[in-house]
Computed example of a mutant assay.
Amino acid sequence: MKYRKLGNSGLKVSELGLGSWLTYGTATEAETAQACIHKAYELGINFFDTANAYNNGEAEKVMGGALRAYTRSSYVLATKLFFPMGSGPNDRGLSRKHIMEQCEASLKRLGTDYIDLYQCHRFDSDTPVEETLRALDDLTAQGKVLYTGISEWSAEQITDASRISKELNLRPLISNQPIYNMFERYIEQGVVQASEQAGMGQVVFSPLAQGVLTGKYKPGQAAPAGSRAANEKTNGVINSYLREDVLQVTQKLEQLAGTVDATLSQLALAWVLRQPNISSAIIGSSRPAQIVENIKAVDLVLTDELLAQVENILAEVKDFAPAR
């Protein structure tokens, strides 16, 4: 495994991280999830990402339970807050009240004394950014959180938050967690630049486009049994990728990957990691074998010629705008 600094901080995270959005606590049984976490750790992954809203806290419990087998200082544990955790008017968002209460709740579910990276899962237009940033800074001062970040904020919101932090002499945000893969590339248009100027690194999710960039889904064929697209609990997002033009392009990309003795998933992950501002690509896994395959991407070198071939193939997909 290889490691990169997270933004301008001194924190180093593995180039591949393990996430738990659509698997742990939902479609994947706890025993299998734990096996995936243990395999990831064994192979050098030190960055583990979850969120309080993933299956209403169950994903945090599974991940925290599995990681308790290891020395706490040996891994970076990240979680998030924003989405509703109850029916009350203050059970959501980024108010000071919700941040303080949900940090305590996440600590209990994770079974730990501190969270390495605490992230704002989305931007909260109902709460002043200053209030959110002060609350995060207080949690850091208390030692309950070591670093803070955001997820899916716009370039303008990132720039504004950085300015406010500097004006108030608050500890800076160090990361942004956006979606990023060969088909969804919006962060290239401003977000990466704003993040670099703010000293933030990207920890991207869905680098394999919900599994489409593994090549398992074929044009004109039904989704394989047991796959994410075949599961009613997890197919809501992936369905937007299951277009004929997208699937035809994945076939061409898979053939291209074969010319460098790589799988499509390894090519897709290495393509994401070509960006220097990306600190880690967060993969999901329902089987330990998937992690074993994906981890080889960190050693795959992509030449300028190969990258140009990738761009030529991707140009065949027009107007891709899935629901997020």
Rank of each mutant, 00 (worst) to 15 (best):
A223E: 02
S125H: 14
D49C: 07
K39N: 06
L256T: 07
N239K: 15
R274V: 12
M1D: 02
T132S: 13
S95A: 09
L208M: 11
Y147G: 03
L94S: 09
A69C: 11
D116N: 14
E15M: 13
T259E: 15
G258V: 02
N8T: 13
T50G: 11
D126C: 06
G220C: 03
G57E: 11
D113M: 04
E244M: 05
V301Q: 13
E311T: 04
T263C: 09
S175L: 07
S106W: 10
F48Y: 08
L18P: 04
G149H: 08
E58K: 15
Q34V: 14
R185W: 09
M182E: 03
V204C: 09
T112W: 08
L18E: 06
P224E: 05
I115E: 03
G220I: 04
K5I: 02
E305R: 10
G215M: 01
Q251F: 00
K216P: 01
V129T: 11
S280L: 10
G65V: 11
A257S: 07
K39E: 15
S162R: 07
E152D: 15
P89M: 01
S280Q: 05
W153S: 06
A223G: 00
L16Y: 05
K2I: 02
E316I: 00
A53W: 05
E232L: 09
Q189M: 06
A270V: 03
K61G: 02
N55E: 12
Y3D: 01
K166F: 02
D49W: 12
S9E: 03
H38T: 12
I150E: 09
D160N: 14
R4T: 08
W21N: 06
P224H: 01
I164E: 02
A198T: 08
T26A: 15
L94A: 10
I174P: 04
Y180Q: 06
K5R: 14
A135M: 07
K2C: 00
K61F: 03
